[in-house]
Design a protein around this nucleic acid. Sequence first.
DNA 1: TCTTATATGAGAATAATTCTCCTTTAAGAC
DNA 2: GTCTTAAAGGAGAATTATTCTCATATAAGA
Lengths: 134, 134
Amino acid sequence: MDIRNKLIDKGLKVTPQRMAILEAIIELGNHPTAENIISYIKKEYPNIATGTVYKVLAVLVDNNLVRKVVTDKDISRYDGFTERHHHLHSPGSDVIGDYIDKELDEMLEAYFKKKKLPGFKIDNFTLHINGRFN
Amino acid sequence: MDIRNKLIDKGLKVTPQRMAILEAIIELGNHPTAENIISYIKKEYPNIATGTVYKVLAVLVDNNLVRKVVTDKDISRYDGFTERHHHLHSPGSDVIGDYIDKELDEMLEAYFKKKKLPGFKIDNFTLHINGRFN
DNA sequence: TCTTATATGAGAATAATTCTCCTTTAAGAC
DNA sequence: GTCTTAAAGGAGAATTATTCTCATATAAGA
């Protein structure tokens, strides 16, 4: 599905800003920050307001078109990666790797199907793996 | 090990502020924010500076006496829970539940012992489970 | 008790994010 | 195509968590 239709599919108004922001996230890769997105977009839309970018990002997150990636820095990053995946991170590095592993997903799903958590209904889960790139 | 000895054990100077902060994190539970910690401590040490609290928290995190818990809000929370655990979270709620499951830990460890990730050496991992408390 | 490296206090500075308010525009109705 | 209107965007001020600066105080070992 192309970017325009992703927005339409969620019942969102299609605006040039929304298209540009969603495209930027996908294009930039490695979980860009709001600032990364803003400077990327300003090449094409020099007048876009930072407030607009933050507002659009919130809309996209609310509609599950992008995921907000939290980091141990006081800065948010955004993930346009729609396939189910986990995150690899190394302390001191800003790189956040994506890790796709269907076998792992299935194993965890089977595990939680068998073992219910008392007082909690699981919707989804992400494994945050810390270590070292080499 | 008591709080004083946790500091000594890491080769850190023992100061009243460090003791109070570490105690506050353990005492407050549910992953307090820096602000929670500050207002708790001010009851006993009204003159503690916010900068001191942030600096001490950074020292404690660096020495693995507490963990920094990242959230999708732009605010850091701190975890004095030393036992190995995972996190339960519900969108829209500020509660972060701790989830201890040795069986899960062992299953994941066994899995990653068998299945190496190319270009990445795993140190540790935390499962972030989203869902609904009920 | 003395010395010194380190920690703290106070408050200014910074930086990511949010808010306000006015203008513009997308999208459906006609 | 034009009109209408609710929703979106622009500009920049405001907010707020966190960091920084630097002078003072103190923990810990000699």
